[in-house]
Amino acid sequence: MPDEYQFHGGERTLWGMRPTWCEIDVSAIAHNVETLAARLPDVDICAVVKADAYTHGAIPVAHAAIEAGASWLAVALVEEGVQLRNAGIDAPILVLSEPSPSGMLGVVFNRLTPTLYTPEGVRAAGEEARSAGITLDVEVSVDTGMRRVGAEPDEVMGVIESVIADDSLTLGGVWTHCAVADELENDFTQVQFDRFDRVLEKLHTGGGEAVRRHAGNSAVAIAHEAHGYDMVRCGIAMYGVDPSAELHGRAKLQPALSLHSKVSFVKQIDAGDGVGYGHHWHAPTDRWLATVPIGYADGVRRDLGLRGGEVLINGIRRPIVGVVTMDQLMVDLGDDSSVSVDDEVVLIGPQGDDVITAAEVADRLDTIPYEVLCAIGPRVSRTYV
């Protein structure tokens, strides 16, 4: 394959038309899977690759995670599971929300494991499995306090019993999701574990003790190892990002993604010149300004410069000035005339002795690293190293 081509989302795209790209270090993905697995011996790792693996690329990340020891994959949508199957990935794939009745055909045809939590979902899964002449592995989710999806604790046994009663379905697992596991002083996580344990005790009494049990996300894997149960679902930590600042450094994670561009234009501007739409920034003195070909259509928030956002050029932090436009942003170089067209710009990642992390960008934007990463759009080419 010519070097100018790279794969993203299973499609071939021309590389080099615009010097803006992400580098994904698949060895970092493997390292993080192995690091998390070492914290939880005898517990399976489920690699969460929804949302195109948090923008890292679901197919290459899935391959790297499985090779590093992950035994399951998890997605949010049936379509995401289909994409993995079309790429030849044969590992078990858990769909984290209950598919619609019309989506059950895709579940059955692609051998996905759906999460169920309503009588309607159980009925739809069973009917589709019977039509296909197969027995479908399913899991049931119980809402212990996230209040997003899942059966209520006092109703979940009814869902479980409906699954067990259907000869076309096999109860493979029961799980829940923690809402505040990344907050070490918040005792609600233990409340959720206790509620989950009570459901599991009812299940054990009913003879269903052999199913997979899991409650853990990345924060549980890092900070609540005693509640790993049979499997943990690792998302953000697999990509080398701490689930929260409170958990920073508790696991030796390696960030897998860096975001790059190159200077496309340099000019000198006069003191008092306004920069960008709305002229939200004016040059305090005569100075140099660089234009970088990446914008909010690529996932860089429009207000990043107004909130103190910076980039690295030649190993030096430089402030983004004015508002980020759809396709470009501007950087204040001060009196430094040494920056040239084609100099590399780092928006996330290391350069020289400095580094800009996704967490730093998130802090400036009053959000979380998950959103910063997932915002990076498909116009940004991905290259795998």
Rank of each mutant, 00 (worst) to 15 (best):
E34N: 09
H177R: 12
S131E: 02
E183W: 01
G228A: 15
E128C: 00
L257K: 01
D286E: 04
A297H: 08
Q192D: 00
L289R: 02
Y54L: 10
E185H: 05
S264R: 07
D354A: 03
V26L: 04
T35I: 03
A359G: 13
D354E: 13
R233L: 14
Y296A: 10
W21V: 15
V48C: 02
I313W: 06
V78A: 06
P319N: 11
D194A: 04
C178P: 15
A87L: 04
L84Q: 09
M157E: 03
G57P: 13
A271G: 09
W281P: 10
V361R: 11
S100I: 04
Q328W: 03
P319F: 13
E185T: 02
R213S: 10
D137A: 05
A375Y: 09
D273N: 09
V241T: 14
V95Y: 06
A70D: 02
I66M: 01
A271K: 13
S258A: 15
Q83G: 00
R302K: 14
W72G: 09
R198E: 13
A181V: 10
V95R: 08
T115V: 10
G249A: 15
A251F: 14
A375N: 15
V122T: 07
L304F: 00
V380Q: 11
A181E: 07
V345D: 09
A226I: 09
V346M: 12
T291M: 15
W15I: 14
A210E: 07
E183F: 01
L312F: 07
T367E: 14
T55M: 11
D327N: 12
D332V: 11
V241F: 14
L312H: 01
V163S: 01
L169P: 03
H31K: 14
L184C: 12
L312S: 08
E152I: 01
T367D: 15
D286I: 04
G305D: 06
R212Q: 10
T20H: 12
E155W: 00
G150K: 10
G308P: 04
Y54V: 04
A64C: 15
E23S: 08
A256S: 14
L347G: 02
D332N: 14
P350L: 08
G305L: 01
V61N: 08
R111H: 03
G207K: 09
A91R: 07
I29A: 08
E225C: 12
E80P: 00
A38L: 05
Q268S: 09
V180L: 05
A51V: 07
R250I: 10
D167A: 04
L347K: 02
K50T: 12
I89W: 07
F265P: 01
R147P: 06
A251M: 06
L96G: 12
Q268V: 09
D230M: 03
P378I: 05
A181N: 15
A358C: 12
G278W: 06
A245D: 04
L73T: 14
S100C: 03
G309D: 03
H282Y: 14
V323L: 01
V385Y: 13
P119D: 00
G81D: 05
D335M: 09
E120Q: 08
L257H: 00
Q254W: 15
S100D: 10
R317S: 03
R233N: 11
L289C: 02
I29N: 12
A65G: 05
H224S: 07
G276D: 03
P243Q: 08
E344F: 06
A359K: 12
S338T: 08
